[in-house]
Every structure is written in structure tokens, then in C-alpha cells.
């Protein structure tokens, strides 16, 4: 099940977010070697973990197994402030376009070395369900080139925003994934599970 927690509500879930930042450190710093994100407390945080971020957390029996973060493109985000060289022209900006970053799954939840496992695909189903609920029409990713084919197979309309760039040991590309009427059915068919995956979602904005 996917729990959606907007940045403004993070302080209400201290245990979950300790696990989230620890997982991010494990995957991005220790496993992928993005050493500039390293932190002494082994919790990875960055300047975008503010009240505008939305956190998507995959949980099983109260344990955090996967994570991804969406950032509004109407504000500074990775593609504008950190990875701008991945984008050759204008990047999509506005309330309909959100950037997805820090997608990760615990090593134990990965099924095989190459396939997308059930936690990984649940996160993808979750971000698309969330996007549809919030009138978001496309998702911006900076990901390994491998994901391009997967995205096409999942019936996203994929628009590369630049060419491949080598970052560390990986070939990374920025791409806009437009959600089509076929996207969610294709993801659910791949998962063999048609029930919604979002269990609990706090509204994007604080009720005033």
C-alpha cells in the first residue's frame, strides 16, 4: 500500500520519515555512490524536502519498503537547479507537471536483478493514481536509460528532454512521461492487480 504524505505533514510521522531518509541514504549514497549526498547520521535529505514536496511511501505491515518523491515544477526542482544540463530546451513547468525523484526500493524487495518487482511497480501505480487524482498530466523523470523502454511498455507517452549523460556509472536521461488513458490499465495489467494502491492520501494543501 502507498501512503501519500505532503511536506507540510511530515512532522506527524517521525518514525516513517526516519526510515525513509535512512533508505534514501542506503540506496543513493551507499549503493549508487552519490557521495555528495552523504550525511554523518546516515539519513539523506536535500534542499527539496520542504513543505512543497509530496512523499510517496510503499509500506507492508508498517515497514517502509519503497519510496519516491514528487516536486512541483512550478518551483525550483532537480531538473532546474541541479541537473539542468540534462535538458536541451525548455522543461515542462506548471501545476500539471510534477517531477519524480529519489525512487527507491529496499534491496530485499527487489525481485531479481533486472525486473521491476512488486514494490517497485506499486510505486509506479501509486504515482499515476496520485497524478490522476490531482489533475497532473505528466511526470518528469531523470532516470537511467533502461527506464525509457519500461515507460514505453507501460503506455506512457515518453518525450526525452535531452540526450543521455553519464553520471557516475550510469547513463541518465531526462524525460517527460505523459499519462495516457492506457497508462494505468497497462501498469495494473503488468502487476496483475487492479485494485488502487494508494491507501491514505493527505490533501496536497493544508485545509485553511
Amino acid at each position: 500500500m502507498i501512503k501519500i504524505i505532503p511536506g507540510y505533514a511530515v512532522h506527524r510521522y517521525p518514525a516513517i520519515f526516519d526510515a525513509v531518509h535512512s533508505l534514501r541514504h542506503k540506496v543513493f549514497v551507499e549503493e549508487m555512490g552519490w557521495t555528495d549526498l552523504a550525511s554523518d547520521d546516515e539519513r539523506e535529505r536535500d534542499q527539496f524536502d520542504d513543505e512543497h514536496a509530496v512523499h510517496h511511501i510503499a509500506m507492508r505491515d508498517g515497514v517502509v519498503l519503497g519510496y519516491q518523491r514528487t516536486l512541483p515544477t512550478s518551483r525550483p526542482h532537480l531538473l532546474t537547479d541541479v541537473l539542468h544540463y540534462l535538458c536541451d530546451g525548455d522543461s515542462p513547468r506548471g501545476t500539471q507537471h510534477w517531477e519524480v525523484s529519489r525512487y527507491c526500493v529496499t534491496p530485499a524487495s527487489r525481485e531479481g536483478r533486472r525486473a521491476v518487482g512488486s514494490v517497485g511497480s506499486e510505486l509506479i501505480a501509486g504515482v499515476v493514481e496520485w497524478a490522476i487524482d490531482n489533475d497532473v498530466s505528466s511526470l518528469v523523470y531523470e532516470f537511467e536509460a533502461t527506464w525509457l523502454l519500461r515507460a514505453v511498455q507501460l503506455q506512457f507517452f515518453v518525450r526525452p528532454l535531452g540526450l543521455l549523460h553519464k553520471i557516475g556509472t550510469q547513463q541518465i536521461i531526462a524525460a517527460e512521461l505523459q499519462i495516457t488513458p492506457h497508462t494505468l490499465p497497462a501498469i495494473r495489467a503488468f502487476r496483475g492487480c487492479h485494485a488502487p494502491v494508494i491507501e491514505e492520501a493527505e490533501p496536497l494543501r493544508r485545509a485553511s
Binding site: 525509457l148 523502454l149 503506455q155 540526450l163 547513463q171
Partner: peptide, 20 residues
């Protein structure tokens, strides 16, 4: 080198379309 990246994209999208 730049064309290699481009050719890779062409290959990936052609394969994706074939699967579709």
C-alpha cells in the same frame, strides 16, 4: 559520440513501439 546517444534512443523507442 553524440550520435551514439541518439541511435540508442532510436533503438529503445523502436523496441518499445514493437512491444506496444
Amino acid at each position: 559520440p553524440a550520435a551514439r546517444g541518439l541511435i540508442s534512443l532510436v533503438g529503445i523507442f523502436a523496441m518499445g513501439r514493437a512491444f506496444q
